[in-house]
Computed example of a mutant assay.
Amino acid sequence: MQLESILTCPECGHQAVETMPTDACQFFYDCKGCGKRLKPKAGDCCVFCSFGSVPCPPVQTDGQCH
């Protein structure tokens, strides 16, 4: 299981390597480039599933968020 993901801001393109929580989904993320607050896209459980290079740990292990 991968615990780090590269988040890419859809507004400014800034990328940051972030460690994903293993016990919860992260719903909000503030871009370190432009400051925009990112929220998951419709149908995604967290910002890592929407904007990350790797989906969150629950999705990695059994294909769905809890």
Rank of each mutant, 00 (worst) to 15 (best):
Q2H: 13
Q2D: 10
Q2A: 11
L3S: 05
L3A: 08
L3N: 05
E4Y: 14
E4T: 15
E4C: 05
E4W: 08
E4H: 11
S5D: 01
I6L: 11
I6F: 06
I6P: 00
L7F: 06
T8K: 13
T8D: 01
T8M: 01
T8I: 05
C9I: 11
C9M: 07
P10I: 12
E11R: 10
E11I: 14
E11D: 12
E11P: 02
E11K: 08
C12D: 13
G13D: 09
G13N: 09
G13Q: 09
H14E: 15
V17F: 02
V17T: 15
V17W: 04
V17M: 12
V17K: 15
V17I: 14
T19V: 15
T19H: 07
T19M: 12
M20C: 10
M20Y: 08
M20G: 07
P21Q: 12
T22W: 13
T22A: 14
T22C: 11
D23Y: 15
D23H: 13
D23E: 15
D23K: 12
C25W: 06
C25E: 12
C25L: 10
Q26H: 08
Q26N: 09
Q26S: 11
F28M: 11
F28A: 10
Y29Q: 00
D30C: 03
D30G: 05
D30V: 10
D30P: 00
C31R: 02
K32C: 07
G33V: 09
G33M: 11
G33Q: 11
G33W: 07
C34W: 01
C34V: 05
G35W: 06
G35Q: 05
K36Q: 04
K36R: 09
R37G: 01
R37F: 01
R37Q: 09
K39S: 14
K39E: 14
K39M: 15
K39T: 15
P40R: 01
P40M: 06
K41S: 13
K41G: 07
K41Y: 07
K41T: 12
K41W: 04
K41D: 15
K41P: 01
A42F: 05
A42W: 03
G43N: 07
G43L: 02
G43P: 00
G43Y: 06
G43I: 02
G43S: 07
D44A: 08
C46F: 04
C46Y: 03
C46I: 02
V47A: 01
V47F: 01
F48K: 03
C49H: 00
C49Q: 00
S50N: 06
S50Q: 03
F51I: 01
G52D: 02
G52V: 07
P55Q: 11
P55N: 11
C56T: 03
C56P: 03
C56W: 01
P57E: 07
P58C: 06
V59C: 09
V59G: 01
V59R: 12
V59L: 09
V59Q: 08
Q60G: 08
T61W: 01
T61S: 05
D62R: 14
G63K: 03
G63M: 08
G63P: 04
Q64H: 15
Q64T: 09
C65K: 02
C65S: 12
C65V: 03
C65T: 03
H66R: 14
H66N: 14
H66P: 15
